[in-house]
Design a protein around this nucleic acid. Sequence first.
DNA 1: TCCGGCTATGTTATCGATCACATTGCGCAG
DNA 2: CTGCGCAATGTGATCGATAACATAGCCGGA
Lengths: 359, 359
Amino acid sequence: MASRAGRNKAAMSQPGGSDASQIGAVTMQTVARMAGVSAMTVSRALKSDASVSQETRERVLEIVRQVGYVPDATARVFATRRSGFIAALVPSLNNSNFSDTVHGMSEAFDAAGLQMLLGDTEYSLSREEDLIRAFLQRRPEAIVLTGGAHSEGTRKLLRSADIPIVETWDLPKEPLGDVVGFSNEEAGAAIVRHLHARGRRRIGFVGGKSSFDTRGSQRRAGFKKAARALGIPGDRVVLAGHSPVSMTQGPEALAAMLARWPDVDAIVCVSDLSAFGALAECQRRGIAVPERIAIAGFGDFEVARCCHPRLTTVAFDCAGIGRKAAEAALAALEARARNEIRAPATVRIPFRVVAGETA
Amino acid sequence: MASRAGRNKAAMSQPGGSDASQIGAVTMQTVARMAGVSAMTVSRALKSDASVSQETRERVLEIVRQVGYVPDATARVFATRRSGFIAALVPSLNNSNFSDTVHGMSEAFDAAGLQMLLGDTEYSLSREEDLIRAFLQRRPEAIVLTGGAHSEGTRKLLRSADIPIVETWDLPKEPLGDVVGFSNEEAGAAIVRHLHARGRRRIGFVGGKSSFDTRGSQRRAGFKKAARALGIPGDRVVLAGHSPVSMTQGPEALAAMLARWPDVDAIVCVSDLSAFGALAECQRRGIAVPERIAIAGFGDFEVARCCHPRLTTVAFDCAGIGRKAAEAALAALEARARNEIRAPATVRIPFRVVAGETA
DNA sequence: TCCGGCTATGTTATCGATCACATTGCGCAG
DNA sequence: CTGCGCAATGTGATCGATAACATAGCCGGA
């Protein structure tokens, strides 16, 4: 077996090669003995700021390299009572908006020497709670959530966790801590006003059925509110398929919309993905976009910028949400470390309507 | 401050409410004292199989609920010498092929009670090494990698880690352990043969520049090999942009291809994303697809199935790769637990050309 | 009656690093 | 020459759970 062979090879000393022993078999004690110092000195030598003589440090580091010593984070966590983990939950990893956010977050946390425990709630409140319960056992130093809708069990867990909490992508009414997001309702309203300004009067909305996708339902609420305010019908709503919203829902939704309201002259989709699906279906059916029907989406996905004609959409800085969420978490941790009081803050991320060629 | 208020509230007992104390403040000892038993009994009560009387177990679990006790995984890891972690690395999380694989993996590992430490190498060998170095400090029980190209430092680290290793998405020449993948070279050849069978003779290839994206370069190698075998030119290659390959590279690549080889009658793109970008650019320029130029991609992304006309592509079961990779890792762990010998295996994932409307 | 064998539970040591405190040795001012 | 102060290093306790072993109490058969 490969691994066993590896272990044997590691145990032998090889001429001229720095030869790594099995990770886990070599502890700080081992290194200490080989260097003729105490474990504490090894520990200090591995920190950059601790007071160790130059000579000792070099000797220790050389041995660390030779034996391939890898520190045991578990022991460090246990001793320092700091896990070095940040828990982060998104509804779906398979959505470039959220994975951009994750990416932005991970850059900031990486720089702070923190590792992310990443979880995918699959748009389910109970799965969110299960994930949080599992993650809390690892004692994360902070937690970043998507949205402001959580189960009562989740809220209770988070209250007793007593760690900084950041909610993203939404502006919750009763935030659990910091917030980095935008009003999806306003975004929904903005796109309706955009279509109205371009002469559309019979506008429909296509969303998903999931009740946990509060961002989707708020966009829908914004659609209705703006339609009423503009004096145009706001009841032309089709809900197709469950979250996560995908391109395949577009054709189905378009069919339902045209069947019920054949005179529809614009369709707002809850996501660029379904908007693109609807656009492609229009092309398939020979429906002229935007002449006969205008189409708009949300999210400024890459497909919106690349497809032909380009999708009109609502853009926001997804990676920026992640970065700012991480910054909020780090600020909260910093304040705690200094034993300072810090009131949770809300960072509003701007959004803007990007006029494409479909509306 | 919310958290401080939470802490105070937690310290007070509330009438009629099960009131969670601060996580971390309550240990197994606390629960044990309240239940009038030893910590060991609490530990046993929390396991389903250990021998504790029904009555004691219920009493302990009731107190656990009341005080909101959350076990400390760090201490458990320390005591049991099992981290419960699996390290998993993908080149990019923002790619639905890989996030499907992650999803498939996480289902299998979840079921086994293992948590994933997820890392994004950003198509960089040195970042892969850094991530592995960081992850190994957490003592993962196994590690799943993407591809077979790794730095020498990575190989050394993995050798001494002495844990099961699974490489995915490729068929490495010198595997580090189990393999779950397919031959990207054969996939590249297959799509060329498909185009040839449909009468195309002047086929170009569009790829990315990254050298770490071995899947991309193997598809290219397959393209060349098949072209030679069929007696058609295999030198019509355009490399545009760095990995990750994206839709935006399509237009640029198409332009370069047409400038250099104006008579090209088919384009194979290294990914559906750039293929879609090229398709949209053709539509913009009024180039008939597939009449004037055929287009094919790889990956069977959702956009390939939804766009109009539908993309011809090469499909493989991405989630299945993840599931099977997890199964391989679990099998290896199982064998180790039983102290059995188990030779690493290679699982070949089938792929197939999906004829769309673009070729 | 006694003891083997079982169930339910307790006791002690342990995992590997780090913290707080103790100690050594040396240079230098008084 | 003495002793202060600093730099470099060592010592012992500690974090929370669990493995391994020990023990108490009970039942039933010889």
